[in-house]
C-alpha cells in the first residue's frame, strides 16, 4: 500500500528539499507545497525513474562522501601543480580499470567520482560494462592507480549499496 502511494520516498524527500532550496525559505506554505510536489511528481513519473539500490550502511556513506570531498580538494592542488609546472614532467596514460559493479546508478557514481578526483577522467566504458577506460594526467604507475581506485572508491561503494557484486 505504502509503495503504491509513495513509490520513491527518497526522491520525494529530495524534491521537497529542492523546492525549499529554490525558494530559499522555510515558510509553512512552501513546506506544504514542497511536500505536495514531492508526493505528486514521483507518482506521475514513477515508471521512468531509474531504480536506486537501497543504502545499506548510511554512516559509511557519510564518511565516504566526506572523504570524496577531501580528495577533490587534494586532487585540485595536485592538478594545479601539474598544470603550472613544466610541461615535460607530465606522464599521461590511458589505463583500463576493471569494474565489478553492475548497477547503473552506482556505476555512474563511480565514474563521476573518478572524474572528479586525482588526475583521472573516465573516458569510456566497454560494451559489456566490465572495463572502464581512464585517462590519467600523471600516472607513473598504472597498477597502483587501478589498485587505488579499487580499494578507495569501488569497494566502499559496493559495501554501501545493496547491489550484486560479480
Amino acid at each position: 500500500m505504502i509503495r503504491r502511494w509513495l513509490p520513491h520516498p527518497a526522491l520525494s524527500v529530495a524534491l521537497a528539499g529542492l523546492w525549499l532550496l529554490l525558494n530559499n525559505t522555510l515558510a509553512p506554505g512552501h513546506v506544504l507545497l514542497g511536500a505536495f510536489l514531492g508526493w505528486g511528481i514521483p507518482l506521475l513519473v514513477g515508471p521512468f525513474v531509474m531504480p536506486v539500490p537501497r543504502v545499506r550502511r548510511p554512516l559509511l556513506l557519510v564518511r565516504f562522501l566526506l572523504r570524496v570531498i577531501l580528495d577533490i580538494v587534494v586532487a585540485n592542488l595536485h592538478v594545479a601543480r601539474l598544470v603550472l609546472g613544466p610541461k615535460g614532467r607530465l606522464s599521461p596514460a590511458f589505463v583500463e580499470v576493471p569494474v565489478r559493479i553492475d548497477d547503473e546508478f552506482v556505476l555512474t557514481a563511480l565514474t563521476s567520482i573518478i572524474s572528479l578526483t586525482p588526475g583521472t577522467v573516465s573516458a569510456s566504458l566497454s560494451e559489456d560494462r566490465r572495463t572502464l577506460l581512464v585517462h590519467a594526467l600523471d600516472a607513473p604507475d598504472a597498477e597502483a592507480l587501478v589498485a587505488e581506485i579499487r580499494t578507495r572508491y569501488e569497494t566502499p561503494l559496493l559495501e554501501i549499496f545493496e547491489c550484486s557484486n560479480t
Partner: peptide, 26 residues
C-alpha cells in the same frame, strides 16, 4: 584561473580535459 591555464597550455585534448573538470568546478 588554473583550470583555464590548463585548458590553454596543456599539449593534447585528453590532458586539457583535466583542467576544466576539476579545477574550474572546484
Amino acid at each position: 584561473l588554473v583550470g583555464a591555464i590548463g585548458l590553454y597550455r596543456l599539449p593534447d585534448f585528453f590532458t586539457r580535459l583535466h583542467g576544466p573538470t576539476k579545477a574550474t568546478t572546484l
